[in-house]
């Protein structure tokens, strides 16, 4: 076994273990943390394919941002698991049936010769001066320009939709407006009064 294979099996073993734990562990926060571990180890596997841009972006986007928000939400929620487990026996036959169908489908596809080491040989390594980042960039902005831009527009629509759904036109809470704060002058805030004291002369 070469060093590279050793690294591959190391990351793959952790990946499979973490992915299994995501499904089977009971505490949601732990499941989210195992998902982080799974992302991290799959980034390691991608690095072995010379895909350093994809690997680092996976860590940056999914581990660094998406999963943080996920954890955020999971920690804030107070999930009571016992009502979720109710009716286990009732749903069991349906669940088993669906599980078996999925398993049969997977087995069908997998036993055809679409997969396997001979269909997908080791792509080998690129020459020393190969830059995955530059290669990916030039492909995306030339060959796949239209698809890439379309994906960007769809994401933009999603952002606008999310904002439109949550935007409250009227402010319900008391809120300090910074633009009002910075234009404050002394005149608007301080009123000098000259109290007439009842002074008697002499």
């Amino acid at each position: 076994m070469t060093f590279e294979e050793l690294v591959f099996y190391f990351f793959s073993a952790i990946l499979v273990f973490a992915a299994t734990m995501v499904v089977f562990i009971k505490k949601p926060v732990h499941a989210a943390l195992y998902l982080v571990l799974a992302f991290f180890s799959s980034a390691g596997v991608w690095l072995l394919l010379d895909a350093e841009f994809l690997a680092i972006t996976l860590v940056l986007v999914y581990v660094g941002a998406v999963m943080v928000l996920f954890l955020f939400v999971v920690m804030m929620l107070d999930i009571n698991l016992s009502p979720l487990r109710e009716g286990f026996a009732r749903y069991l036959p349906a669940g088993l049936l669906i599980g078996l169908v999925v398993l049969a489908e997977l087995a069908y596809v997998y036993t055809r010769d679409y997969f396997g080491p001979e269909r997908f040989p080791n792509p080998g390594h690129h020459p020393e001066d190969y830059s995955n980042t530059a290669e990916l960039g030039s492909r995306l902005y030339t060959e796949h320009f239209l698809g890439f831009e379309l994906a960007a527009v769809i994401l933009l629509v999603a952002i606008i939709a999310a904002i439109a759904l949550t935007l409250r036109p009227k402010r319900m809470s008391k809120y300090v407006r910074p633009e009002d704060q910075v234009v404050i002058t002394r005149k608007g805030r301080v009123k000098l009064v000259d109290p007439k004291t009842d002074k008697t002369e002499g």
């Binding site: 350093e52 680092i56 860590v59 940056l60 660094g64 941002a65 943080v68 954890l71 955020f72 995955n132």
Partner: peptide
Amino acid sequence: DAGLLYILAITSVGVYGVI
């Protein structure tokens, strides 16, 4: 090659410790 990206990715992992 992707040094800057690496730094961004690795430093973004640090937030997990805090959470």
